[in-house]
């Protein structure tokens, strides 16, 4: 450390902390959007209609075929114009913030991946699940919410964990649209202190640590879900009687 006073360091650390918070907010908001959109799209495009399936193919092909950064720029630069086209006069006055553009872009891009996972998981469910629910005359809404989707989530969990860690590593892209996130703060601190090596390594380690922590959590979750599944056949008759 050459000429880095303690007060300066504290200042940069505060900035980094604030940036990290913004990165986290961005990440959680984007993942939530991707998840919700993805599940909806996944379920909706299971339809037998050729048109719907073709639309899904186009959607997936586009968003899996272009860089996330490009989608971020597209929404950041063109978002206002798009909103204006959809909402008329009112939309034109909405300014798109880097944060909003980031959430929208990452959410849309990764919703395609989530949707694909969900579709795959549903197709892998035993046919009997649907038939059973139908035979019991369970209303579709409840069937999906209580019977199908929980199982789908269990099947899709490893894939979702992948999406999670991939998306985390793409959140820094939003700093290129001007978001003052962790990476932007690190870049400023690196430039001002002339200590880029330390700041960038430290930032990288923050991402790695967060990723490792969430992976650990996901593994615990998976173990718990698996245990539930293995016990279920033994337990359920007893519970039914109780």
């Amino acid at each position: 450390m050459t000429n880095l006073s303690l007060a300066d360091l504290a200042g940069y650390l505060r900035q980094l902390g604030e940036g990290a918070l913004i990165t986290l907010e961005l990440f959680f908001a984007s993942f939530a959007l991707a998840f919700v959109l993805g599940v909806l799209i996944g379920v909706a495009t299971l339809s037998r209609s050729r048109l719907v399936r073709a639309a899904w193919r186009v959607y997936a092909s586009i968003f899996m075929g272009v860089p996330s950064l490009l989608v971020i720029f597209l929404i950041f630069y063109g978002g206002s114009a798009m909103l204006a086209a959809v909402l008329g006069e009112f939309g034109a006055r909405i300014d798109i913030s880097p944060f909003g553009a980031g959430v929208a872009a990452l959410g849309i891009v990764y919703s395609a991946y989530v949707a694909e996972l969900v579709r795959g998981a549903i197709e892998n469910l035993p046919k009997g699940q649907f038939e059973g629910a139908r035979a019991l005359a369970i209303p579709p809404f409840i069937m999906w919410g209580r019977v199908i989707l929980p199982q789908v989530m269990r099947l899709a969990l490893p894939g979702l964990v992948n999406v999670w860690s991939f998306m985390l590593k793409e959140t820094p892209l939003v700093s290129l649209a001007g978001l003052q996130d962790l990476v932007a703060a690190a870049k400023i601190a690196a430039g001002a202190t002339k200590e880029p090596f330390i700041f960038f390594v430290a930032t990288a380690l923050v991402f790695i640590a967060f990723s490792a922590a969430s992976l650990w959590l996901a593994n615990r979750l998976e173990e718990r879900l698996d245990r539930g599944q293995r016990r279920a056949p033994v337990r359920s008759p007893a519970q039914a009687e109780a």
Binding site: L168, K169, E170, V183, A186, A190, F197, F200, A204
Partner: peptide, 11 residues
């Protein structure tokens, strides 16, 4: 693998 590509590039 764990570090975002952008940070690697800056680094």
């Amino acid at each position: 693998r764990g570090a975002p590509l952008l940070i690697l590039l800056y680094l």
